[in-house]
Computed example of a mutant assay.
Amino acid sequence: MRNLFIFISIFLFSSVALSAEKVTLHFWHSYAAGGFYKELSENFTKQHPNIKIITTNYPTDDLKSTIVLSMFKNEAPDMVLFPSDLLGYYKVLKLGEVPAHWFNNNTESAAIQATGKGNELFGIPLYQGNHLMLYYNKSLVDTPATTWLEMANQVTMLEQKGVKPLAMRVNKMYWFISFLNAYNGFSLVNDEVVINELAMKKALKAYKFLLDKKLTEKSCDFDCTNERFFSGEFAYSFNGIWSYRDGKKRLGDNFAIAALPTIDGLPLKSMRSTTVLAFPNNSLHSEKAQAIFTFSNYLQSEKVQRHFYQKNGQIPVDANLVKTLQLQGSENQKIVLKLLENTFAMPTSAAMSAVWPGMALGVELYLAGELTADKTVIFIQKKIEHELYKIKQLEGVTH
């Protein structure tokens, strides 16, 4: 009897000690307002004192290379937040397959489907969109241009007001691909990039039209599409959902949204992506799995989903909240959701990571007049093939 009492005492003591054991989770992201996730993590720890979240913020352009390097150094974080197309690196990052019960029941099925290949799901969707739209300042433009030619015809009028026409990041391929999509210029087949040569030439010429007509500046950067537009230097900003909240705050009732202007009678089609929480180095199957599960549930909760939208203007993946926005949102909010319908979903393939650098240098050389459209297409095709080769080599090294 005494031995039984000792055994029970030891068992209870061990259980209490285990429940009190503190777990530290490392969480990486690239959200510009780094304090947002730090605040969320601190609020989570107040509710779960035994789980500490250390957040690390990397520049968007550096996150992919940093996370890949961390795998080689065995220093990968427990969780990382990134666009769903990076899930295509699931082999390199050793992303564990997410169990079905980890997904919130209210999450839109389309958002869940965007997190994997076939029946394998490698991330948890937290918010969606990331699409490009046309913002404009109503104090400078009465009626927004519906075609690029129409905007070109507004240049003189805007210059007379001392205003530049369009803020746009010409050097970023996320913008160029909207033109390419208008002509159905590329597709992925079995993780290989297929370029429609005629469509690529048309997209290149349409893109160069913007510079030839002095609609925008080749050197336009993030500050250009945001701060300089908000301060009234530009009438339009070809920009993303990520700047919606700042636009409303800075321009107030003069901030408005329109569909992207058409080209050759065809609508431009921005890419869209889902931002997901992923788990490198099979962390969701590690001894920290329960703590990771608890934090992922917290980020999927209605309260946090609502916070994503109210604080940052990010479109939630909670189906009930999306319906509320569709019914009760402002005119601008409804336009944002409507424009999301005319977008291309970002494929969950590592091949997409070959597209961006594969196109960038070729487009730059074409805009500088150093390559013809014909030679640019050939250059881009070869560059994409080279980038795909590097990705496959990387996958071979990590397995």
Rank of each mutant, 00 (worst) to 15 (best):
L166E: 03
A182P: 08
L166D: 01
M173R: 05
R169E: 05
K161R: 13
M173N: 05
V163N: 13
K164T: 03
M168R: 11
V170Q: 04
V170N: 12
K172G: 01
N171Y: 07
F176T: 08
G162V: 05
Y183T: 09
N181S: 10
V155I: 14
K161S: 15
E159W: 15
S178T: 15
L158I: 06
K164Q: 14
Y174N: 06
V163D: 11
V163W: 04
K161V: 12
V155T: 14
K172A: 03
Q154S: 11
Q160M: 15
T156W: 04
L166P: 00
G162K: 14
I177G: 02
R169D: 02
L180G: 08
K172C: 02
T156L: 14
W175Q: 11
S178C: 10
V155A: 13
V163Q: 12
V170S: 08
N171M: 06
N171W: 07
L166N: 05
A182C: 10
M173Y: 01
K161D: 04
V170G: 00
P165V: 03
R169Q: 06
L166S: 03
K164E: 12
M157T: 14
V163Y: 13
N181Y: 04
A167Q: 06
I177L: 15
N171K: 09
F176C: 06
S178Q: 07
K172M: 04
E159I: 02
Y174D: 11
W175M: 11
P165S: 09
Y174V: 02
V170M: 15
V155F: 10
Y174I: 07
A167P: 01
K164N: 14
F176Y: 10
S178Y: 05
G162L: 14
I177A: 00
M168K: 03
L180D: 09
A182R: 03
E159F: 12
F179I: 04
Y183M: 04
R169I: 10
M173A: 02
M173K: 02
V155L: 07
L158C: 10
P165I: 09
